[in-house]
């Protein structure tokens, strides 16, 4: 048989020549691969982010309403006005409650899926978390508007069970209550919890999958009661997953402006403030300064999470 083409020492054409060049200069190959995504993300995304940051150091002229393009920290100073601090505090509180509730509700699901579900059940659990995670955000919010409406299914349920008094007693509570569930803090909380819950379950499950069952048996073997095994073995091992999940629930709650707009009280959250300042109020510098708040909070949060090893569970 004739020698195959692999044995001809000279390049066979321009394509081969280019391939030779890439073989000789491996760095060039990496550069060519990385250049388009780096340019896209670096120029379009980071560029925009810096444009936003830059705006936060400008201020708005109170009389003319025009942006004053001079460096100032005054806009950041405005964040510390009582009304604005309120917004920040309210948002962080909401994010924290949602995160804790999601961890509490999500843990059993993740634990069952990781430890006990096998075969078909495993797939079912997996899809059972993936489908709500990926299904339409707006549809999910919408479904809760239906649920929480005054004439909706929840009120009907309380009525059917003759528990309307309970619902009314709850709604008359300060802070968490309100005219109806759909315009209460509780309503906002429930929708946030619902929408972000899958983001908590998946990382916890990933972390728990890595705990060998023999480790729990060892703990039991050494005399630990189930409660002790949970506290001293399972929880520490699941913690990176919980922290990873909390990054999502926390970050997503901090920046959301649609949920509190549709379900909730008139008291604003950070996302709404950003949206309104840049839109109707036209105060882009203040909107930008507000947008920096979640970035800073998440920066601190990610730093702490990284030190706890949460990124291995992502």
């Amino acid at each position: 048989m004739a020698e195959t083409a692999a044995h001809h020492p000279a390049p066979r054409g321009p394509v081969d020549r280019l391939s030779d060049l890439l073989w000789r200069r491996q760095g060039l190959l990496v550069l060519l691969l990385i250049l388009p995504p780096a340019l896209w993300l670096g120029v379009i995304y980071l560029g925009s982010l810096f444009a936003l940051l830059a705006q936060s150091f400008f201020s708005i002229d109170e009389f003319s309403g025009l942006i004053n393009y001079e460096f100032t920290l005054r806009t950041y100073g405005e964040l510390f006005r009582a009304a604005n601090l309120d917004i920040i505090l309210r948002t962080v509180l909401m994010a924290a409650s949602v995160t804790i509730a999601a961890a509490v509700i999500g843990f059993p699901v993740a634990y069952y899926a990781a430890r006990y579900a096998r075969g078909r059940w495993k797939a079912l659990f997996y899809l059972g978390v993936m489908l709500p995670l990926w299904s339409s955000y707006l549809v999910k919010v919408y479904s809760w508007k239906l649920i929480l409406a005054k004439e909706g299914i929840l009120s009907w349920l309380f009525e059917t069970l003759h528990l309307t008094w309970l619902l009314e007693a709850y709604l008359s509570l300060p802070v968490v209550g309100g005219n109806s569930l759909s315009v209460s803090w509780t309503g906002t909380f429930l929708v946030f919890l619902y929408v972000w819950l899958p983001f908590m379950i998946l990382p916890i499950q990933a972390a728990l999958e890595r705990v060998p069952p023999s480790m729990l048996e060892a703990s039991g073997d050494l005399g630990a009661r189930p409660g002790q095994t949970f506290r001293h073995v399972l929880l520490p091992l699941a913690l990176p997953g919980i922290v990873a999940g909390s990054i999502f629930t926390f970050s997503l709650t901090l920046g959301d402006y649609i949920i509190p707009q549709i379900v909730g009280t008139s008291a604003r959250m950070i996302g709404q403030a950003v949206y309104q300042f840049q839109g109707t109020a036209g105060n882009i510098p203040l909107a930008a300064a507000f947008a920096v708040v979640p970035i800073v909070i998440m920066g601190v949060y990610l730093y702490v999470a990284r030190r706890m090893g949460a990124f291995d569970a992502l």
Binding site: A38, S48, L49, S251, G255, Y257, V274, I284, P294, I295
Partner: peptide, 27 residues
Amino acid sequence: TISLLVILPIALPGIITGISLRSAFNL
């Protein structure tokens, strides 16, 4: 850095990506 850069657009709240792009379009 590249991995971080890829993840950043979903790690940061969507409103930040949105308002950043809008202000860049404005500028």
